[in-house]
Design a protein around this nucleic acid. Structure first.
Lengths: 234, 234
DNA sequence: CAAGTCTAAACTGTCGACAGTCGGCGATTA
DNA sequence: TAATCGCCGACTGTCGACAGTTTAGACTTG
């Protein structure tokens, strides 16, 4: 009913929940770097391109703002978030703090079923490692960590993890390559799971620290290496 | 219309920010129990009552949803959040996890200036304790804890704290009374600050645990005592 | 009298329009 | 030539309207 031929690219949206769809599309565009950090997100432009009105776009933008992908300047509009090295530090610092706790709680709640889910996810990580698909690899990585948060059983913690992950997805997506050998990444999950299965809090914390600390250092290094983001167009 | 070059100072408050104002009004109404948990928030109703259109109300509602004061049911509207005992546990569990870390970081960053700010805030807590104004007391309490997060220097951690605090404000506002003697509350902040000044991580964690754990137990007890919220009208 | 059905009112999701604001660019002035 | 002013276009904030969906209530039926 709407949709009078979007000028460029993207096929129009039709299903219900436009906000969600617009949010997903925007997220894609940002993570893929089509909307580079610092660039302005013009409501009307996105709306026209997707064949919807500005209202859903606005709400979607608010959503992405909350997720940390956009920043809003009153009366000036939304801009794609720009990350600096200290953002990486903040994200990983918080992530470490939370995931340590999550892993300990997960160990406490672990059942045969949830344990198997974690094991299976590590298998998936190994399988994915052969695909040479960084985005996918990162996704499966997060799925493992997310599982731990789920098993921990604190919904707010899970949401926090999702928010942090969404920021990291963007950073890593923009970096464009993985910070390490995929198989190596997959392997370093194993001692974490082992510690959780053993249920020894100190060992859990130690292994989570090692695992996440590793990623922290590597991502931090890459961000510092390629500091001026791809193209802060417009 | 716009202020022509404000000489010095800071008058330029965006009073044209309807969304912010609506959000504040809504928050007030919720915390004061005028919009009881479970009740429906009708966009048009709020809009008419505040003399604005539905658009700003919608955006404000999304904001409160992110803060955890409202829940959105697609096609059904927004409802005032209902808290159960396990929500309290989730909030405090996360809060404890984060504030432990924040306090340790704050100790690391502590300067004479920030230390004085913390001391002064404890004084304020004592002064406020005589006012018999629970809401105010809670506010000053959070200001102390918020300061610690600020000093810790992780913006994302600060935002997380603010979100959790906003949920707790609502819960405690609805409980309608404090969970303890205000002076007692004020006093229990002192060992936390002392530990931070001493800069001894284990002691910091121990005292934060004690302090927040106390609030956790007390709030949890009250919530369990008065479980069916005031009036889930409409 | 309980359960189910149908209808009307109430609301949400979405849209297009309009006014005010912001930023850029060229003209103006020293 | 550099700095300032003012205008113009572009964009955001807000509004009222409309269509489709949900809800409440009257009405029917077993």
């Amino acid at each position: 009913m709407r949709t009078i031929s979007p000028p460029v690219g993207l096929p129009a949206l039709n299903e219900t929940d436009l906000v969600g769809q617009v949010a997903r599309r925007l997220t894609e565009a940002i993570v893929q770097g089509r909307l580079p950090p610092g660039s302005k997100v013009v409501e009307a432009g996105i709306a026209r391109e997707l064949g919807v009105s500005r209202a859903p776009v606005r709400e979607a933008a608010r959503l992405l703002e909350q997720q940390g992908l956009l920043v809003a300047n009153p009366r000036r509009g939304f801009f794609v978030r720009q990350f600096a090295a200290d953002d990486i530090d903040e994200i990983y610092d918080l992530r470490l703090c939370v995931e340590r706790h999550a892993a300990v709680l997960a160990a406490r709640n672990l059942t045969a079923e949830t344990r198997d889910m974690l094991r299976r996810q590590i298998d998936v990580l190994h399988e994915t490692a052969d695909l040479d698909d960084p985005a996918r690899q990162v996704e499966e990585d997060y799925r493992f960590h997310r599982l731990i948060c789920e098993i921990a059983g604190n919904r707010r913690m899970l949401r926090l993890f999702d928010d942090l992950a969404s920021e990291l997805r963007m950073v890593i997506g923009l970096i464009g390559r993985l910070y390490d050998d995929p198989h190596e990444i997959a392997r370093t999950h194993e001692p974490v799971l082992a510690a959780i299965e053993a249920g020894h809090p100190e060992r859990i914390v130690a292994h989570v620290d090692y695992h996440i600390g590793h990623a922290w250092r590597e991502v931090g290094r890459l961000v510092r290496e390629i500091p001026p983001w791809p193209a802060a167009a417009k």
